[in-house]
Design a protein around this nucleic acid. Structure first.
Lengths: 240, 240
DNA sequence: GAAGGTCAAGGCCAAA
DNA sequence: TTTGGCCTTGACCTTC
């Protein structure tokens, strides 16, 4: 649960200073996996045979397969076996050659999102199993989660924006941030939404804003919402 | 190994992932809108408000804050608040966003290595501490806090934006920020959520929106939550 | 009962 | 972009 914009926000400067370890006494016996022993089967990745760093998602797996499974599940990826056979070799040397077969083998080896140990997946079609590792992205729906969802939505919006072939609205930055400020102050008062339309004339003048009509529509919507909100919460007050 | 810490960024990771994942066990059916009633203060973590598993290092604390304090003390870590304000919110949802502020709050809440109960650490800002640190991002406590929070958010946004290699998109920035407005206004009122689905067609048409399906899921979820919220808070009203 | 210890889950990011 | 190594976190376990 770390809600983060972090990735987006990587600050160029000074990554060096957030934390300093004082006193170099680290007596930490490095966690190198007891090299003394030859690796028992338990220490081998059940998927590709590479060295396992321990249990992951229910089975002994290497960092690679663990990470691969994690990403696949989280992003609900569905791969396709280019060879068409679904029988590509999945070992340390070849595990990256076919994602479909790698994921298939992960599932067949018993990997599952919940980390349960004895999941029987033997009868499943590889693709059908997707439901199995489907993570519960949006679990319960208590009001509490509204915050989470909000954060998630914001993050997605930002991420989405970042990936767009974009052009800077040079002249709109100030308005933009004013808008931000207004938005963030919303919890205080419902009023601020009103100001979106007020800001808009300036914004719309800016070159590059291709579809003012669209913006207007959005503004209309916000007006409607605002109206609803006002009527609901401030029934006694005149038009705000 | 501590070098890793140096990379922690001010803006914590994605709200989508980090905050959502850690410690978000959804098994708590009890923690709804009225947290004050279900758990007595003694069972709440004095640092982040999460459920406390008992006393740790002198105060009631959750496993997370206990472990965090333990590690910090043992390894003598010194963190730095990337936001520079030293006032990051430390609650269950945000406690992993700023280690510096988390540790600071641990100390101010009275945590100490020896587990003494009444350590006076208030010499700096006795009164502010309690109120200041009870402030969470959204819960509208006092006006003052909302302003502070807004200012902080704006500050963080500016900092973030300054480092974006990116730019605003020509055609969709307005939607993006309206979406932001909607999202951030959630805590006050459920109404705005309604507009997300309405916005979506526009947003989804935009090139570069990689995973409309995911957005739809979020919207669906939002609708569900909205419904619940409405029924809970406005039982007498017709469909909103 | 509250320390300390364990170890997957999940996050970050350099390197491929 | 994807991979995978390494890190922190926190639920659980063991020890004192």
């Amino acid at each position: 649960m770390e809600a983060h914009l972090s990735k987006i926000s990587t600050l160029p400067a000074s990554p060096t200073e957030s934390a300093v370890s004082v006193g170099m006494d680290e007596s930490r016996a490095d966690k190198s996996p007891a090299p003394g022993k030859s690796l028992s089967p338990a220490l081998l990745c059940k998927v590709c045979g590479d060295r396992s760093s321990g249990k992951h998602y229910g089975i002994y797996a290497c960092n690679g397969c663990s990470g691969f499974f994690k990403r696949s599940v989280r992003r609900k990826l569905i791969y396709r076996c280019q060879a068409g056979t679904g029988m590509c070799p999945v070992d340390k040397a070849h595990r990256n050659q076919c994602q479909a077969c790698r994921l298939k083998k992960c599932l067949q080896a018993g990997m599952n999102k919940d980390g349960d140990e004895n999941i029987d997946v033997t009868s499943n079609e590889p693709e059908r199993t997707s439901s199995e590792y489907q993570m519960s992205l949006y679990p319960s729906s208590s009001l509490e989660n509204v915050y989470e969802t909000s954060a998630r939505l914001l993050f997605m919006a930002v991420k989405w924006a970042k990936n767009l072939p974009v052009i800077l609205l040079e002249e709109a930055w100030s308005e933009l941030f004013l808008l931000c400020a207004i938005q963030w102050s919303l919890p205080l008062d419902s009023c601020p939404l009103l100001s979106v339309p007020e800001l808009s004339p300036t914004l719309q003048e800016t070159r590059g804003l291709k579809d003012p009509e669209q913006v207007e529509n959005l503004q209309d919507q916000s007006q409607v919402m605002l109206g609803q909100h006002s009527r609901t919460h401030y029934p006694s007050q005149p038009v705000r």
